Simulated assay, not measured.
Amino acid sequence: MKRWLPLFFLCLLAMTASAQITQDATKQLRIYEDDDFFNIWGRGTDRGYSNGSSIGYLYMKKKKSVFLDKWILPVAGPHAINVFEWDGMQIMITPNQIADTSYIPKDFYYAGALYATHGLTSYNPERKYSFHSEFVFGVLGPWAFAKETQTFFHNLIGYQPPRGWEYQVPNAPLINYNFTYEIMLWNPVDYLEIVGSANGKIGTMTTSASALTYIRAGLFNPYFGHRDLAVATKRRFQLYAMARPQFSMIGYNALLQGGIFRSRNSNFEELNNYQETHMRHWTIGMDYGIGIVINRASINYTQKTRTEWMSGTGKHSVGNITLLIPISRKTIPGD
């Protein structure tokens, strides 16, 4: 039955979408779903980074930022267009054989995380660059309820229940700060954009650095917006293909290594003594997909492929569906 789930979910979103972050919507709802069973080549799996579900609220405001917003969420100049957000997300990682009740030392740990994110995307339409900064706080381990979530949905769709969650990583706090810089590299015509990007993460969840290139071709509005609202939103229908090659260096990942309290958990440390795989510190990847925008709403499908995160586990591909729904008709915050 699970083989029909991606098709059903795509159809459901297509009916709901009527959806992208646009300058003529100051409040938006974002629904984001990663699942390795979503695969355009029909090669869905249920291992590694198995699932990530998120719901977010994006908004623009007139009031000046205070406290953390002011100090850790920088803006891209005095006339930048700023979109703030609050998100909640749960992710889970599992080994390949989830029906196995024994510990599997040659595969991923069972790991789940539940966290909230507060961030800002600030873009400068004149100089065509943007900052995205975010503060992450949450929990790792049984407190994240990943076992309960996966068991519930597998029972719901009649799929094999996961039986190895007793071996999951221990509880630990997750606190992270992530920052991304993007700049236009090449925009020779209206239907082609190439954007360069650098990303850094530091904290108890992930410490890493990445370099990316975002290539977009088709019918779309300017990636970094425009000071003139009419120009920024001139296309009411958008359709484009995208690709995002990337290279990452990972210093630390709590979900792959057990979290900051792993040494305090004797059961986990005992299991870890038998672990035969280890985290890869260098990965390369390619995202590719399509985006559709109708009026002020958008739906995007992206296939995300990466070289192996853990030695001996092989490359992995995860499908993503993102839906953005405007929930405000106001074009200027507070008006």
Rank of each mutant, 00 (worst) to 15 (best):
7 L>V: 14
8 F>W: 11
11 C>Y: 11
11 C>Q: 08
17 A>W: 01
19 A>R: 02
25 A>D: 07
30 R>M: 13
30 R>K: 15
34 D>C: 11
36 D>P: 00
41 W>K: 11
47 R>W: 00
52 G>S: 13
56 G>S: 15
65 S>G: 10
68 L>K: 11
72 I>W: 01
74 P>R: 05
82 N>H: 11
84 F>N: 14
87 D>K: 14
90 Q>C: 05
91 I>T: 02
99 A>E: 12
101 T>F: 03
115 Y>D: 08
116 A>S: 14
117 T>Y: 00
119 G>V: 06
123 Y>E: 09
124 N>G: 03
127 R>K: 15
128 K>D: 05
130 S>V: 09
131 F>L: 04
136 V>E: 00
142 P>D: 04
143 W>Q: 12
143 W>R: 10
151 T>Y: 05
160 Q>M: 11
161 P>H: 06
162 P>W: 05
165 W>C: 07
166 E>V: 14
167 Y>F: 14
168 Q>E: 12
170 P>C: 09
173 P>A: 03
176 N>T: 10
176 N>Q: 13
179 F>R: 02
180 T>L: 10
181 Y>M: 07
184 M>R: 11
191 Y>Q: 09
192 L>A: 04
194 I>V: 15
195 V>I: 15
197 S>R: 08
200 G>K: 04
201 K>Q: 14
203 G>R: 03
206 T>E: 13
220 F>Q: 04
222 P>C: 09
222 P>W: 04
225 G>P: 08
227 R>I: 10
228 D>W: 01
228 D>E: 11
231 V>C: 08
235 R>W: 08
237 F>G: 03
240 Y>A: 07
243 A>S: 03
243 A>E: 01
245 P>N: 01
246 Q>Y: 15
247 F>P: 00
250 I>F: 06
252 Y>Q: 09
252 Y>G: 08
254 A>W: 04
256 L>A: 02
259 G>C: 08
261 F>Q: 07
264 R>Y: 11
264 R>M: 13
265 N>E: 08
273 N>T: 04
275 Q>W: 11
278 H>M: 09
279 M>A: 08
282 W>S: 09
285 G>Y: 04
286 M>L: 15
290 I>D: 01
295 N>P: 03
297 A>W: 01
306 R>P: 03
311 S>D: 02
312 G>E: 00
314 G>A: 01
318 V>E: 00
320 N>H: 06
323 L>R: 03
327 I>M: 04
330 K>N: 14
333 P>H: 08
